[in-house]
Computed example of a mutant assay.
Amino acid sequence: MTTEDERKSRMARDVELLWGLDTTPARRGPKPRLSREAVVRAAIGVADAEGIEAVSMQRVARELGYTTMSLYRHVDSKEDMLVLMLDTATDGVPPAPREDGDWRAGLEEWCNGALEMHRAHPWSVFVAFSAPPSGPNGLRWMEAGLRELVASGLDVGESLQMLTILSAVVRDTVRLEIEMTRAAQSTGSTLVESENDYSQSLRRVVTAERFPTIDRMLREGVLGEAPAPGRTGGPAEELDFGIRRILDGIESYVRAERGTGG
């Protein structure tokens, strides 16, 4: 027979989990030495150091010096632990409302903040999403992004769609950068060196007649260009251009549909 808990959607389950609505009242007596927060922080430490693949209930328990069964008193499953890890890793402070009302600048700040959080915890882009933001940290960032999008003239539903797109662009670009960097490192190369090799290999098969635009790209040296000092040349470093073009589209849409200047 299916229980009420089993019938709950993952999204409803996440709200209860992230807001502590799933916990039973604390019993009287000494405070437990182990806590849910300690478990989650230890799991994040493992993921930051070794990647999300290294995270398991057994590994986190070993890191804390407890038995695996001890962890299950605080976190029901690895899936729950990943949900808790993601919200905890999103503990940066989202941009405050801008005094000048510049929603575009506000969204650029929002995207740059999300980018930095993913770079601080690279494993976060490899965790499958089971639900929209549900926890205190995730909702703070969601609120900040929606606030700026609504300020552009979009309605709340349109703003939610665009925030989903912006979040996906940032997350997937960071993931691509990480995967490309790992692939280059596996051969003892840098990302720029790997792109140079790719460019040289393409020159052997690309002709102006068959692939005219790719041929132009190669002739103009788009791939393998030396990055600016302190930069690696990864795709996330060029993210500003794409974000600004998305914001151009929002501004043009609002101007056409709402008859405003954004």
Rank of each mutant, 00 (worst) to 15 (best):
G145N: 06
F126I: 02
E148W: 04
R175I: 10
P132K: 06
V127T: 02
M142A: 15
N137G: 01
V150Q: 12
E143R: 15
W141Q: 10
A131G: 11
G138A: 07
W141D: 03
P133Y: 08
S167Y: 02
R171E: 02
G153R: 10
V127P: 07
D172F: 09
A128M: 08
L149M: 09
A128T: 05
E148V: 00
V150M: 11
L160S: 14
A168Q: 07
D155I: 02
L149F: 01
N137L: 04
A151N: 14
E143Q: 15
L166W: 02
L166G: 09
A131I: 07
M142P: 00
E148T: 02
G157I: 03
G157L: 09
W141F: 02
G138H: 08
T164Y: 01
W141E: 03
R171W: 07
T173S: 07
D155S: 10
F129N: 12
L163C: 03
R147Q: 11
A144H: 10
L139H: 07
I165R: 08
A144T: 10
A151T: 13
G153L: 10
F126G: 01
T173F: 01
V174T: 07
A131D: 01
P136A: 09
V169W: 08
L163W: 01
G157F: 03
A144W: 04
A144E: 09
V127Y: 06
S167G: 12
Q161L: 11
P136W: 04
D155Q: 10
E143K: 14
T164A: 11
I165F: 03
G145S: 07
L149A: 12
V174C: 13
A131V: 06
V150H: 05
S159V: 01
S134L: 04
L160P: 00
E143S: 12
I165Q: 10
S152E: 02
F129H: 09
T164V: 09
S152M: 03
L146T: 11
Q161C: 13
V156E: 15
I165L: 13
S134R: 15
L176M: 11
S167C: 00
G135W: 08
S130V: 04
A131S: 15
D172T: 13
